[in-house]
């Protein structure tokens, strides 16, 4: 699809504006518009959504007329590992606890680097980082995160 357009970056940006705009208008259709002296909950989202749809259309049309840069290649592996590591942290934090989810997060995200290899310095850094988080955030600042979650009877 992007090869059709002369400015793929603008095309994609336009599609994103359209998506937000349409979502805004679509969701706001259930809210009351009210009158101009007593505006309802739907007034602002509808107006803003309409503006975004307009911007989106402009951007998409422009992308077929004015040439621009291509979108750079996406490093899917790095992106997937960063997103995956964060998501797993969210999933594991409460059932498995902070220590396990931190280990998973650090190891998984570190493997996103092309230079990743296991070495003793990295292992020391890993242990130090986990210890730092436990002492500073949980003990020091009192963030109520379980160190070991329900899976370990914590």
């Amino acid at each position: 699809m992007t090869s059709l357009s002369r400015n793929p970056k603008d095309l994609l940006a336009g599609v994103l504006y359209l998506a937000f705009g349409l979502a805004g208008v679509w969701i706001a259709r259930d809210y009351s518009m009210g009158t101009s002296s007593r505006m309802g909950a739907g007034y602002f989202p509808t107006v803003l959504g309409g503006m975004l749809i307009l911007f989106g259309l402009l951007s998409v049309i422009r992308s077929f007329l004015v040439p621009g840069e291509a979108v750079g290649t996406v490093a899917w592996k790095g992106l997937a590992l960063v997103v995956g590591a964060t998501a797993l942290f969210g999933v594991l934090l409460e059932p498995a606890g902070l220590v396990v989810s931190l280990l998973v997060l650090i190891l998984l995200s570190a493997s996103a680097s092309r230079m990743f290899r296991f070495e003793w310095r990295a292992a020391v850094a890993l242990v130090a980082l986990v210890a730092f988080c436990v002492f500073v955030f949980v003990r020091g600042l009192g963030v109520p995160m379980p160190l070991f979650g329900s899976w370990f009877g914590g």
Binding site: T86, F89, G90, S113
Partner: peptide, 30 residues
């Protein structure tokens, strides 16, 4: 940088969580 960015991700996760102590904010961040 390869030693650094896992730590940054970690601080982001804990930081997002600690505002409301809710895992939901981690999803918002993601």
């Amino acid at each position: 940088y390869r030693m650094l960015f896992p730590a940054i991700i970690l601080f982001c996760c804990i930081g997002a969580y600690s505002v409301n102590n809710s895992v939901f904010d981690i999803w918002v961040m993601l």
